[in-house]
Write a protein that binds this DNA or RNA. Structure first.
Lengths: 157, 157
DNA sequence: TACTGATAATCAGCATACTGAGCAATATCC
DNA sequence: GGATATTGCTCAGTATGCTGATTATCAGTA
């Protein structure tokens, strides 16, 4: 396995690189200015209104430190509102704004198109299989990164 | 496809995140301090001695701008030597140093172990299939990123 | 040879990602 | 109830990655 080109680490990095480029291109074509990270955060906030930043980080598997800056930029763009929590004065509750909802609705087709586009070259069956294998590998390695995926405390029964 | 968890973009990001964490852990355990990017660059320089930075970027599919900083750090660690090219006064030729060769030899087992570890949870067959699918998707999307993979001008016949 | 276009490298600037440290507030245990 | 541990958030610092611009050099051509 000494050749770089057959190492899983290299292959994932490349695919991720392409995925991000495809995402940016599709979103920009649609007239929006959101990064993949910002989109994921915005979508998660829309679905789990009032959540705090730590919960948000767990839901989309981001590092807590990174979330601070991402939310900063979403707030600055007027898509998200951040206010101190009544329950826990350490926490900030996040809510999507009307502008945020509008952006989210408008950007959805571009996001879907990007997801399809990054699988170009694969048949439908291959694309599904790729996602299944990625999901399986991720499940096994979830705890290995500093930012593992966590379910929302109150979101599931 | 509205759920984040079934989007290829999200899955790749997660897997990459885990892959990098696994790499760092394995390399650190072995007593080395090299990032995945630095390792890939070092290995490419070892194999293609005297190459310039643009060629290096193409070989490992990095952005040229990023390479500058990566090589800076490799030079600072004493693993790579950078000197002006005689053929082209714009270019810098890169060579691995004795320390670089020693590091590369010593780090190899940890890198191999990391590659295996990031596929934990998959059977051998599944691991191979994942790599095949990633490779196929990457081939189809190579030109979509700013840093596509390029073969070395003189490396292949 | 002068002009034009392309190329190698770097820089400024922005946005992830991470480590490690710190502060404030909450939870827990005795 | 008070010490202790934990948690939510932020910050400083480092390393990718990218966009866009600039400088120096090279290559091809009129």
């Amino acid at each position: 396995m000494s050749e770089l080109y057959v190492k899983p680490g290299h292959l994932v990095r490349r695919f991720q690189q392409i995925a991000v480029a495809v995402f940016h291109a599709a979103v920009e074509d649609a007239g929006y200015d959101l990064t993949p990270v910002q989109y994921a955060a915005l979508a998660a906030i829309a679905t789990n209104s009032g959540l705090d930043q730590a919960t948000l980080a767990g839901l989309i598997a981001y590092d807590r430190t990174t979330i601070t800056g991402v939310v900063d930029r979403l707030v600055q763009k007027g898509l998200v509102a951040r206010q101190p929590s009544a329950r826990d004065r350490r926490a900030h509750e996040l809510q999507i704004t009307a502008a945020g909802k509008k952006t989210l609705r408008g950007i959805e087709p571009a996001v879907e198109a990007a997801q399809k586009s990054m699988l170009r070259g694969l048949t439908t069956a291959e694309g599904k299989e790729l996602m299944r294998l990625l999901g399986k590998a991720i499940d096994a390695g979830n705890e290995l990164s500093r930012a593992p995926l966590r379910e929302a405390a109150a979101a599931k029964s």
